[in-house]
Design a binder for these strands. Structure first.
Lengths: 132, 132, 132, 132
DNA sequence: GTGGTCTAGACCACC
DNA sequence: GTGGTCTAGACCACA
């Protein structure tokens, strides 16, 4: 598996997992319908507890990014991803505001900030190209 | 004081304080050298614990946004704000990556995302105009 | 066969089967004495496991809705259905209580709830009319 | 605490907790803003694990029935309960359909069924009167 | 073998 | 003291 966990990080392990799985979908390394490793095998691969993996899967299921089948395991949501609903836009605005404020204080200009945002977005969504 | 605390939020109170103080500096409602309320008075104003305010001030001092004098109290860093050092750029990239990935998955385009970033930045830095 | 299985559902497949067979009897699409498909053929039709179909049949046999003959196969109970015994009334009360409580909390009135119950009952028992 | 857990039941403990808490709100034994016991104390009271209590609280928080504060613990949602949204109406219809089908098969009439529904609803919402 | 549930015990951040 | 997170190990229902 192409995931990496930083056990020393202050950000919870399950959150790291959630982020990386979303990035995997964004970069099309994970496509709708693709199967994901079972909680047990992924936990073993990463050297963490299966409950931690399970929590990440539950969060993503809750948000509509994954489906958990009774027996076949976990798959990437096949029928289209959830859109930019109000909850997400609020979350996005909050996240950007916090980052933008500190960037502004540290002297980064509006265009620099916007370009940085665009650059990170582009890098993410074209990461999958390397794998081809 | 123009700060608002959401006790129900999942984000720690001291973090909300830190964010709002940084936003205050970004919008120039707080200028270099400006005095900040004492730990005691701010805590009383907001109805929160002394330790919580103190922690926020310590974090901001640590990052170089504030100066804490034993006797004269707390002031906004008078000698220029810290710049965009490597640590910040890393933190910024991480923050944006997480947001950008979810935005991409939810169908938001690169330009939409960049424009949203610019819009939030602009709104922040021009908020102070109202107060004039 | 007119049954539909939702593999993504959180409710077990065998429970979905049980429910739909009971609904079939309620709507008189299945009448006392009617033969049911063999475990093998139904499993094949629905693309599920033999054991799953078998478990559903066993549950229904246990409750007295079906008769399972070693050789002749499975038939809908010919000699009258079981009545509203104490066990069922308890199960019914438990089920309704859980639904009614959430309905009440969400602001649905008693009459609304009762009418919804009646409406669903009526829809079920008249569904068979279409097939005629 | 007025809750009772049946460890032998096939229904998960956390689900029993969820149901009873919703019933408590429906009967106004729990009013908006009321504090709930901490996960630790409730777990100790009921003789179960704190994680089990926590799961119940998380489910109810997710559905908007509870708020979890950082430190004051858990309280009943003060600002109005969630309404009868599409998700709930679907869940309600599914639940009633399953019960109504079996009731019909067992010979319970539509009016009996509707009256039983109304009776259970009324008993729930007037239970709080006893406590007065 | 899969996820779901439960237990037990631990450490941490927050306040 | 509160909830949040993580680990470890267990049993069960489902398929």
């Amino acid at each position: 598996m192409w995931m990496e966990i930083d056990l020393q990080s202050e950000v919870p392990i399950y959150t790291q997992l959630v982020d990386q799985l979303i990035e995997g979908i964004a970069s099309e390394q994970l496509k709708p319908g693709d199967p994901l490793p079972s909680v047990r095998s992924l936990a073993a691969d990463l050297g963490i507890n299966l409950h931690t993996v399970n929590k990440a899967y539950q969060v993503l299921k809750q948000d509509g990014f994954l489906q958990v089948h009774r027996k076949q395991g976990v798959v990437v949501q096949p029928g289209g991803m959830p859109g930019t609903d109000a909850a997400f836009r609020a979350k996005l605005a909050r996240g950007i505001r916090s980052l933008a404020a500190e960037a502004a204080v540290r002297g980064m200009s509006e265009t620099e900030f916007a370009e940085q945002s665009a650059a990170v977005y582009r890098q993410l969504t074209t990461k999958g190209e390397d794998a081809k």
